[in-house]
Design a protein around this nucleic acid. Structure first.
Length: 588
RNA sequence: GCCCGAGUAGCUCAGGGGAUAGAGCAACUGCCUCCUAAGCAGUAGGUCGCAGGUUCGAUUCCUGCCUCGGGCGCCA
């Protein structure tokens, strides 16, 4: 319950009292802070339905609401805006109640909701590259935010570990090491525990193989055959494949750990393999899947639909499964095994058609009941200075591992330029630099809307000035430093008093908006609302800090109140940053 | 050709049917004997791609057009 939602109730009741719909009583933060703290625009919306002049309706509402002790002032302006000022006492009371709430006013989620979030999608044998960055940052943030609201959430990395690229690697390894026991069809095991290939080997073999796939038809055929054999369960292939997966997961997990991106389950395409056969059979016997040009497809457009979309490829003409097949089986896994109530895919916008096909097929085939939400939350790309997806000089997608190294060194340079933490130990400096770099990149990403592509400019993101991650860390650290100093002076926070300064009022109002920002981020699947809010809150605090000198304040109860406000501000800033996946150092 | 997305200040980007469209950077002007100036206050900068429509009210919703990006059955 926030101050705003209290006002929504109050105004909703007032509209109901004069015979109009409660929903007209929506109250929002004022767009004209010079005229009020909140505003209600419902009188204008209600005018048509009520067949009354909007200012008359507003006058009736004001007459009712004016009696409430929380309301200090109401003005009807222009065509029928109601500008609202609340009492300083109610502002203080609302702030205190927020401080006592673990969720800081956020409306609790339905405890029966269980969301499966898909924000990984790395491929075995390929290191994480910049293309995985947005999805990881946005998904991690969304997972934390949803979880903060009390929802049950399971993050799945959904490894790409079962496609033709696996067959390619098998063929490529066989070409290079033909005598390996894994290729001996008479061998009955057990196979060695030690992997014959390292992650570096896979990284080297995969591009080689991809090139041959295009230029050598016989090679491509062999790779597809190996894929089919693997999927059919040939023991040597399975054993070798397990090594591919293990060495890849180790490398992939290391980078996600560095990014502080975490998955609850490490499932993948291969984990649904056993579902595919029965699923295909069921879809065929139900008449949902049909033969087409030697393949088996699911038509996902109705005949009467004006704009047809292509059918989903269920079984390729060579007998192999496409990624739509595994994605479809994964929906089934998420419904049946994970017992989710919905799944959200944080995946590049370029996959939109694919998900449209999969979701339609899942409905058509009865794989996901209507009650199970299926959503693609598309994200934009990370672009270079030229506005096209970021590439290295060689034209490759930069590896996240390399990007992280750049981030760290730029963070250190940025700290050096400011003379920051110059007297700290080398170890602490390195720790701070890492957190600064992470804050820079994550805030740089999350301050943009999920769907927009943005220009990756490390220099700009790493600046300590302006709307950046490092600036937000600074605010959190600055408050911590203030509180520490107060503690050393023997000063304790106390009850929050009615605000007496404009900057203080503005800060309390901004604190109360946290829940709105979080709820908006959840509803829109858009963490940038939390990022934007965190920045606004930081500005509100800095203005307060500038105008209200806390430690030198002589009125002890006022000083104690301000310390409490500062402490709460820090908590909200740190919480907001945590929801963005950003960790704050103790000091800087 | 069809589908999806984008077009807002010099640059990078926010923006929830509402009043005078915002922020950061860059430019310019002030403010540190005072809790971290990594800050604060201010000036300047806009036909919100174009044209219609719906509405009391449109940057926001709808239609058309222009420009750019992406996608469109056996890669994932």
């Amino acid at each position: 319950m926030t101050l705003r939602s209290e006002l929504v109730d109050l105004f909703g009741s007032a509209f109901a009292e004069i015979g109009l719909d409660r929903s007209f009583g929506d109250v929002v933060p004022s767009q004209r802070p010079d005229l009020g703290q909140f505003q209600c625009n419902g009188a204008m919306s209600a005018a048509r339905e009520a067949k009354r002049a909007p200012r008359d309706i507003a006058a009736d509402v004001v007459a009712i609401v004016d009696l409430d002790p929380r309301v200090a002032g109401l003005e009807i302006a222009g065509p029928g805006f109601i500008n609202i000022v609340v009492t300083d006492q109610s502002l203080a009371a609302a702030t205190s109640s927020l401080a006592g709430d673990d969720r800081l006013g956020v409306t609790p989620a339905d405890p029966l909701d269980h969301w499966i979030l898909d924000y990984g999608g790395p491929n075995v044998a390929k290191e994480l590259h910049v293309g995985h960055l947005r999805t990881a940052i946005i998904g991690e943030s969304f997972k934390r935010t949803l979880r903060f609201s009390g929802a049950r959430v399971t993050g799945d990395v959904h490894l790409g570990d079962w496609g033709v690229q696996m067959g390619q690697l098998l063929v490529e390894v066989r070409n290079e090491q033909p005598d390996l026991i894994y290729f001996d069809e008479d061998f009955e095991g057990p196979y060695p525990d030690e992997s014959p290939v390292s992650m570096d080997d896979l990284q080297r073999l995969y591009p080689t193989s991809s090139a041959k796939m295009k230029s050598e038809p016989a090679y491509a055929a062999a790779a597809r055959l190996a894929t089919v054999d693997l999927q059919a369960g040939r023991p040597g292939y399975r054993a070798l494949w397990q090594h591919f997966r293990d060495v890849s997961v180790e490398a992939i997990r290391g980078v996600y750990d560095d990014l502080d991106v975490d998955f609850d389950v490490w499932l993948g395409e291969s984990s649904v393999h056993d579902r595919i056969g029965p699923m295909v059979e069921r879809l065929e016997s139900a008449g949902v899947a049909e033969p087409s040009d030697g393949a088996i497809v699911v038509h996902v457009s109705g005949d009467e639909e004006e704009h047809q979309i292509p059918p989903l490829m269920l079984v390729k003409s060579d007998g192999g499964y496409a990624y739509a097949t595994t994605d479809l089986a994964t929906v089934e896994e998420r419904v049946e095994d994970l017992e989710g109530t919905g799944a959200i895919y944080f995946v590049d916008a370029r996959q939109s058609l694919h998900f449209e096909q999969v979701f339609r097929a899942a409905r058509k085939g009865g794989i996901a009941p209507e009650s199970f939400a299926l959503e693609h939350a598309p994200n934009g790309t990370v672009n270079g200075p030229d506005g096209t997806p970021l590439r290295t000089r060689d034209g490759d997608l930069p590896l996240l591992r390399d990007l992280l190294a750049d981030i760290e060194s730029i963070a250190i340079a940025s700290m050096d330029a400011k003379g920051l933490a110059s007297d700290y130990s080398a170890e602490e400096r390195a720790q701070i630099a890492w957190l600064v770099g992470m804050a820079a990149v994550k805030f740089g990403d999350l301050s943009n809307h999920r769907t927009s592509s943005y220009v990756f400019d490390l220099e700009r993101f790493s600046s300590f000035e302006g709307k950046t991650g490092p600036y937000l860390l600074y605010v959190a650290v600055r408050i911590a430093s203030l509180l520490k100093k107060a503690d050393e002076m023997g000063l304790e926070p106390g009850p929050i008093l009615a605000p007496a300064h404009d900057a203080e009022r503005a800060l309390l109002l901004k604190i109360s908006e946290f829940a709105d920002a979080v709820e908006r981020a959840i509803a829109l699947r858009a963490p940038n609302h939390v990022a934007e809010y965190c920045y606004e809150l930081s500005g509100a605090f800095n203005r307060f800090y500038e105008q209200c000198h806390i430690l030198s304040e002589s009125d002890a109860s006022l000083r104690a109140s301000w310390l409490a406000v500062a402490g709460l501000t820090r908590r909200v800033v740190v919480t907001s940053l945590d929801l963005l996946g950003i960790s704050v150092p103790e000091r800087m």
